[in-house]
Simulated assay, not measured.
Amino acid sequence: MIKIYAPASIGNVGVGFDILGAAITPIDDTLLGDCVSIEPSNTFQLNCYGNFSTHLPKDIKKNITWKAWKWFSKKTNKKKPISITLEKNMPVGSGLGSSASSIVASVLAFNKFYKTKLTQVELIKLMGILEGSISGGIHYDNVAPCYLGGLQLITDDIHNPTQKLPIFKNWLWIIAWPGITVSTSTARNILPLQYSKEICIQNSRNLSTFIHALYTQKSELAIRFMQDTIAEPYRISLIQNFLYIKTALLKLGALTCNISGSGPTLFSICLNISVANKVKEWLEKNYIKNNQGFVHICKIDQLGARKIRI
């Protein structure tokens, strides 16, 4: 049997709309990511279980794991039936790369099972295509970090579509999903079709200074320029009391409060576990809407997707 785990991810990372993404993992070793298992079978099977499996489409042909299997079965022309299990640990429409997690785990599992030996670039491009079939447009800011780990800069270069960036090891990333969803298409459609020259310049300044600060290890500078001028001003209307929450977390000692991907998950960064726990407790009390919601203190997952023991 082959079993692949693919971690959750933060798209945009505030300052890098559609071109930055970070893989994350809870410090308490909670499994925050999807798993796909494959084994030979007498009949084709796709079984889904996990906390969020009921959120998946009932029509199997709309399941992203089925779409990935269909692609590989056509490419290899192998019709031998297999049993596929998708362990859905990620909430759909959460802003934590749920679809990317399923896609990455599926593609890597099939690539290994069918021995197609696709290159890293070929794998990333296939992952982007499958992601686009869900969100309406090809983008890699979740699939790249989910697959490769760390903080990734999406270059879309023909030879090197993504580049790993350095990150501050002492940063603790607190993520909070309230238990409700925001569709990626809704979050993208709310954005303007055009931006002023001033906003474009500011966005370029913020992103370039942030990346400079990563390479020169200037943590305070990186935080000051982790500002989203492209998406956050418009998407805060989709998140109730966002500005109040942001102010409250900063008063507790958090360094940031930003929207993860399309939302509604929020992420915050802290420098020590004491502040991180205060932020976690506040979010659990004031941002979680139901018993499905969660808050985790995380670190950057440098490994990305990997084979795990059965």
Rank of each mutant, 00 (worst) to 15 (best):
I245C: 09
I245N: 12
I245G: 11
K246C: 03
K246M: 04
K246S: 09
T247S: 14
L249G: 07
L250W: 02
L250R: 07
K251E: 04
K251N: 08
K251T: 03
K251L: 03
G253I: 08
G253N: 09
A254T: 13
T256A: 10
C257Q: 11
C257I: 03
C257R: 11
N258G: 14
N258C: 14
G261W: 00
S262T: 14
S262R: 01
S262D: 05
S262W: 04
G263P: 14
T265K: 01
T265S: 07
L266G: 00
L266M: 06
F267D: 06
F267P: 05
F267Q: 03
S268M: 04
S268F: 03
S268E: 05
I269K: 03
I269F: 00
L271C: 05
N272D: 15
I273G: 01
I273Y: 07
S274P: 02
S274V: 11
V275P: 12
V275A: 08
A276I: 05
A276P: 10
A276M: 08
K278E: 11
V279K: 10
V279N: 10
K280S: 12
K280Q: 13
E281D: 15
W282P: 09
K285M: 13
K285W: 09
N286D: 12
N286F: 14
N286K: 15
Y287K: 07
I288R: 01
N290T: 13
N290A: 13
N290M: 14
N290S: 14
N291W: 04
Q292E: 13
G293Y: 04
G293E: 01
G293A: 05
G293C: 04
F294W: 02
V295H: 07
H296D: 01
H296P: 04
H296C: 09
I297L: 09
C298G: 07
C298Q: 06
K299P: 05
I300T: 10
I300R: 05
I300K: 06
